[in-house]
Design a protein around this nucleic acid. Structure first.
Length: 556
RNA sequence: AGGGGUAUAGCCAAGCGGUAAGGCAGCUGGUUUUGAUCCAGUCAUUCAGAGGUUCAAAUCCUCUUACCCCUGCCA
């Protein structure tokens, strides 16, 4: 793992360093607490790397805990996808997978304790009434008429709630804190609500479910979490987090620290918007390679190490930020440049006929799999008189800057010979269909004797021996850097975010490509075999990212 | 009648009273059988703004400005 060299420094690690040094803690316990109501995205990858990374570096432990307090929105399928994503990213959680729902009995006990202390009450205000009583950001709220019910009554009422004697929405359990607090979350927040819903873990055992603010802090404490890391929007909630822990009989006191969420240019990160993309079939599922989900990055060809490196490079702070795609792309290019074997694929083929090459002859050329890493070996690439080359790699005439095949000029065929174009055929629309030329037989693995070294190198495949493949070219999902700021993101979707090339020609060695196996198609970019639609002998490759292309920039 | 946060280059981000790290992007050259990679060089006299303290301020103080979050029986 290349990211092992130097540890990142950030304000959270500084806090941990201080806590360890002061003796406040002797070990570190973190947790990654997703709600199983959707697929994990790259923002979660940041949280995963933060929590698991800290546990690793401090010889601590990190739990995987599903925050499953809202059965109506959650699903066991999401539990499985999330577990798979965390593992794939390369992390191992401490012990078994945990669920907040495991603690429902304990949580219920703490709720009863609060009632007994006169710190919680059952409230029968309707939603509308409660909103009115809550006041506003600038005006204090007022006390619920049920706020001063006796402890005995509240105990009995809460028991009836638990026993299903109240309808959904009829009443809730609330903490008795302060209806005039400037922290809205301290204006007698709801602790429990009634929901007659089947839960994926607890089945039909409960008809009351605890709210996040009550559950999270207690779950952290129960698990002995020392540093509870979350995102900035929970800063106010920290007051409630601390209130609950202070008012309940529990000895471990975790502390919550907040850092900013990740925003990435040209995509959306909110679960709601991602759900919309999937539900409206604007993409082909959660793992559509255009999505910012972990499953999608995986399918697209991003490696776990590249995602880990990315989270390391972007850092951890409290500043709102929007990271450029270029950072992510640099990470995967760096990984794949070193590790992906090279291959040749022609996406937009035209024929190149070498007229002085013996008809019918096929040479098996040995070509290096990596230009500078000999350990990666060689492969056999067939060469024959009829080849395919990229349409854009030939021009009848061109200026000196164009370093590819031009009439009467020479070019190097990658890993093979130097050829010179002599003439070409065109179709009725003027498009070149076939280029004719001659090759220099004495240029295999060496430059021409006459010192005329060609400027350019182009890729190719042997026409007869090549195989067909479908190649999917992906681009950003949106045309604007911040689609989330748009009134309606549908209007800024990139129509060209997926281009499917159904009959690309690829070199025969690629039949052996395994799902998710990465290659660099020379001069094109990094590709991997699709892990879903590429079954049997059907070959589908996804473009992970293109090569850095300074020529394209000059061309503009 | 508000409260909680954040401001350092195009984008991230170190810095924690001693004279602005690093990465990405960009720009210049060099190598190259990938217009890739790689290599060398370059890229903030200034830290949201204005005052103040100090021999010395991005760091401390005061005021101002901008942006984000908070009024779900979501998390």
């Amino acid at each position: 793992m290349s990211e092992a060299e130097k540890r990142p420094t950030n304000f959270i690690r500084q806090i941990i360093d201080a806590d360890l040094e002061s003796g406040k803690h002797s070990s570190v316990q973190t947790r990654f607490p997703p709600e199983p109501n959707g697929f994990l995205h790259i923002g979660h990858a940041k949280a995963i790397c933060l929590n698991f990374g800290i546990a690793q570096d401090y010889q601590g432990l990190c739990n995987l805990r599903f925050d499953d307090t809202n059965p109506e929105k959650e699903d066991i399928d999401y539990v499985h996808s999330i577990e798979a994503d965390v593992k794939w990213l390369g992390f191992e959680w401490s012990g078994e997978t945990r669920y907040s729902s495991q603690y429902f009995d304990k949580l219920h006990g703490f709720a009863v304790e609060l009632i007994e202390k006169g710190l919680a009450y059952v409230c029968f205000l309707t939603g509308d009434e409660a909103r009115e009583y809550r006041g506003s950001l600038k005006a204090p709220g007022k006390n619920s008429p049920h706020r001063d019910s006796s402890v005995e009554d509240n105990l009995a009422l809460f028991d009836k709630m638990k026993n299903g004697e109240f309808k959904e929405g009829e009443c809730v359990l609330r903490a008795k804190i302060d209806m005039t607090s400037s922290f809205m979350c301290l204006r007698d927040p709801i602790l429990y609500r009634v929901r007659f819903a089947h839960h994926h873990q607890t089945g039909d055992k409960w008809c009351i479910y605890p709210m996040y603010d009550f559950t999270h802090c207690l779950s952290d404490a129960i698990e002995g979490v020392t540093h509870s890391l979350c995102t900035l929007e929970f800063q106010d909630n920290r007051r409630l987090y601390d209130w609950v822990l202070e008012n309940v009989s529990i000895d471990v006191i975790p502390h919550q620290y907040e850092s900013s969420r990740l925003n990435l240019e040209y995509t959306v990160m909110s679960k709601r918007k991602l759900h919309t993309l999937v539900e409206e079939k604007l993409v082909n599922g959660w793992d559509d390679p255009r999505m910012p989900t972990i499953a999608a990055f995986r399918r697209r060809g991003y490696t776990p190490g590249s995602l880990r490196e990315f989270t390391k490079r972007i850092g951890v702070t409290k500043m709102d930020n929007t990271v450029e795609m270029g950072v992510l792309e640099a990470c995967i290019r760096e990984d794949l440049n070193d590790n992906a074997p090279r291959a040749m694929a022609v996406l937009d083929p035209i024929k190149l006929v070498i007229e002085n090459y013996p008809a019918g002859q096929v040479e098996e050329l040995n070509v290096k799999n990596h230009p500078s890493d000999d350990e990666q070996g060689t492969r056999i690439v067939p060469f024959a008189a009829e080849l395919y080359i990229e349409a854009e790699d030939f021009r009848e005439e061109a200026n000196k800057k164009y370093k590819r095949l031009v009439l009467d000029k020479a070019v190097r065929l990658r890993g093979a010979y130097v050829v010179t174009a002599t003439r070409c055929d065109k179709d009725s629309e003027g498009n070149v269909t076939t280029v004719y030329g001659n090759y220099n037989a004495d240029t295999l693995g060496k430059n021409p004797e006459d010192g005329t070294k060609p400027k350019g190198v182009i890729h190719w495949v042997a026409a007869e021996q090549s195989i067909d493949a479908e190649i999917r070219l992906y681009d950003r999902l949106f045309n604007v850097p911040n689609p989330a700021a748009e009134e309606d993101f549908h209007r800024v979707m990139n129509e060209g975010s997926l281009i499917t090339i159904s009959h690309a020609k690829v070199e025969p060695s690629l039949v052996n490509a395994k799902p998710e196996q990465a290659f660099q198609f020379e001069r094109q970019g990094y590709f991997c075999r699709d892990n879903k639609d590429s079954q049997g002998d059907k070959l589908v490759f996804n473009r992970t990212v293109g090569l850095r292309d300074t020529w394209a920039k000059m061309d503009n």
